[in-house]
């Protein structure tokens, strides 16, 4: 057994770790660095629960070796909020009840953030296709899509596009 020494940046912090050659980035995050926000739902890239970005590119951390992270910049769900201030997507997911069990939520938030960085004004269809690799079994996706669209509108500086919604939230 010869472990590999890797230097990387995770959520903006310089990070070093040792890993086995066959360890995935997800193994490293969860088991070596204690960052358990990314989940292993399938281990084959089919569910998206392990989504992270690597050099701003959305990937499944279960399909990348930990060793490949050398010199890269990784962003995970743990780095999404700014201190105690939630990212608008995080806030909108809670407000829209866009999660039930919550296991897919970290991956979907990371993927949705990547969507809005690439396309600040997505159509519903674009959002649905971008997120097609993130399985959610609880919600039927309805409230997730609404939360993403509402967060996008807010981030663009527009007023919430659903007047019923803002009214009922105020109650």
């Amino acid at each position: 057994m010869s472990q590999i020494h890797v230097t990387t940046k995770i959520n903006g912090d310089e990070t070093e770790f040792l890993c086995e050659p066959e360890d995935t980035l997800l193994d490293v995050l969860r088991d070596r660095l204690g960052l358990t926000g990314a989940k292993e739902g399938c281990g084959t890239g089919d569910c998206g629960a392990c989504s992270v970005t690597v050099d701003d590119r959305l990937v499944c951390s279960c399909l990348m070796l930990g060793a490949e992270a050398e010199g890269r910049e990784i962003a995970t769900i743990e780095g999404m909020a700014d201190g105690e201030v939630l990212h608008p997507l995080q806030r909108k997911f809670i407000e829209h009840a866009a999660l039930q069990c919550g296991i897919c939520t970290p991956g979907i938030l990371v993927a949705a953030k990547s969507l809005l960085e690439n396309n600040p004004d997505p159509s519903e269809e674009e959002a649905r296709y971008w997120l097609a690799g993130n399985l959610c079994r609880c919600t039927g996706y309805d409230k997730i899509i609404r939360a993403v669209m509402d967060a996008a509108a807010e981030m663009r500086g527009e007023i919430a596009n659903d007047p019923d919604d803002s009214l009922r939230r105020a109650s």
């Binding site: 890239g45 998206g48 959305l58 990348m64």
Partner: peptide
């Protein structure tokens, strides 16, 4: 090919 995530790789 696969999802947005897969296309990232």
């Amino acid at each position: 090919i696969g999802s947005t995530q897969i296309q990232g790789r």
